[in-house]
Amino acid sequence: MSSRTVPGSGLWKGMWVLLYTMVRTIFKPKKYLATVNYPKVKETPVARARGVIALDQEACTVCMLCARNCPDWCIYIEGHKEEIPPDKPGGRIKVRNKLDRFDIDYALCMYCGICVEVCPFDALFWSPEYEYSEAQMGDMMHDMDKLQDWLATVPDQPELEK
């Protein structure tokens, strides 16, 4: 490879690669175009992509497992006990934990997914949604209503390899 060639031949070779690749990409963009025009065209992330965490408020029992297992402790949970009157007269009064506050600070979050994994009641899910950047760092704190809204974007899990 290191044998001396005609001076300047490398330049023409480079120009040829440039021209060839350009013409190829212009005429067959579907096959050769490697980028997308982002705000207008969006790529679909894979179903397992860890984009944002969605919360199912009904399923949450305020067990705090997610907050305790978080590696950087970015989940803030508060709750209270609530008495549910018995279904029929003379029945037992049920006590349920009610969620008051469930905040995830995405400015701190490491997107490891441990909270989703340890949740024993299937209240947390990953959504591949990624467009939630903010101008202020404080706005990265998502409260429980916002987390509930993400639940609509949770996809079905992909089929497994046979």
């Binding site: 397992r48 992509a49 860890r50 490491m110 490891c112 441990i114 994994e117 949740c119 947390l124």
Partner: peptide, 27 residues
């Protein structure tokens, strides 16, 4: 990313194997 869910930080290994389940909920 398709397997692990993360491009750069897969966090896919668990002691005893790879990440077994996604919501380990019993429900």
């Amino acid at each position: 990313e398709g397997v692990t869910g993360g491009r750069f930080h897969p966090n896919f290994n668990r002691i005893g194997g790879v990440k077994p389940a996604y919501g380990s909920g019993s429900m």
